[in-house]
Amino acid sequence: MNTIAQRIFDQREASLRPPLGVVPPGAVSLALGEPDFAPPQAVIDASLKAIQHGRTNYTDQHGIAELRDALLAALPARPSDWDKNNIVVTHGATAGLGALFFALIEPGDKVVIPQPAYSLYADQVVLAGGTVEFVPMGTDLHFDFEKLAVALKGAKMVVFSNPSNPNGIVHTRAELEKLAELLDGTETLVVSDEAYSALTYTEEKFTSALEVEGLQERTLYVQTFSKKYCMTGFRVGYVAGDKDLIAAIAQMHRTF
């Protein structure tokens, strides 16, 4: 008797994510975003101090209040009425994305993913019951707005990383403003995974989706400590956005 849930077979069939194996000698693995530096000494010292002072217990299920206040202050931009309840701290960005999709996607909802993309997005959307519509990037690896305009009709959300994982490009302010124009008058949510925002090397200053007026209110901003601070094993991330959506994401995250 087969006791494996059908959603696992659906996910396997739809997934573009290869299984991770042992890296052969002489090869360089591009599978995991693992920075090649140590966490800042201040992080190490603070972690040790917290352990020594017994701060190893359960916290507020949205995350430690002082941490959320600090994260709120550090956001690239935000509506004036946001407070710490517009942020939920998660088990890395991965669990934040998973909680987000499971909390907000209904079976059959269309989710647009510009491709190539981080393969985890589609895997989680399928597990949540959504339908993925991939949209190829242009030849310059930036958004193809003609194709996006068609795909976004009736979409529940559009998901992308900026800077892009895996192609490495940085979506410009002009691109994000164009995306805002396409979405104007719709209910489509924007999921902007900005895990690599501290690791950019372009002449133009990096622009977050939260800094674009037409995207700010509809954006769920996904971030992690893993890349900027080389804290991949700490599994600390967070999601910021509309307070009601964050409350739903926090509720789902409690089950993970």
Rank of each mutant, 00 (worst) to 15 (best):
M1P: 12
N2K: 05
N2M: 05
N2H: 11
I8W: 12
S15L: 14
R17Q: 13
P18T: 10
P18S: 11
V23Q: 09
P24Y: 11
G26W: 10
L30F: 12
A31M: 06
D36H: 04
F37P: 03
P40I: 07
A46S: 15
S47R: 10
L48F: 12
K49D: 12
A50R: 15
H53K: 02
R55L: 15
R55I: 09
Y58P: 00
G63R: 02
L67I: 14
R68Q: 03
D69T: 06
L71G: 04
A74L: 08
P76G: 04
S80I: 01
S80T: 06
D81T: 13
N86F: 09
N86K: 05
V89F: 09
H91A: 10
F101G: 00
L104I: 05
L104S: 02
I105L: 14
P116H: 09
Y118E: 00
Q124Y: 06
E133D: 12
P136N: 10
M137S: 05
T139V: 07
D140T: 12
D140C: 05
L141I: 06
E146G: 13
V150H: 01
L152Q: 07
G154Q: 08
M157R: 03
V159G: 09
F160I: 04
N167I: 14
N167K: 02
N167R: 03
I169D: 02
L176D: 00
E177A: 09
A180T: 02
L182K: 01
D184L: 06
D184K: 14
E187D: 15
E187S: 14
E187N: 14
S192T: 04
E194K: 04
E194V: 11
A195M: 11
Y196A: 13
S197P: 00
A198Y: 10
V212C: 01
V212N: 00
E213A: 15
E217D: 14
R218A: 12
L220K: 03
F225C: 03
Y229Q: 05
G233T: 10
R235Q: 09
V236S: 05
G237L: 05
V239R: 02
G241A: 08
I246P: 01
Q251I: 02
T255L: 14
T255S: 13
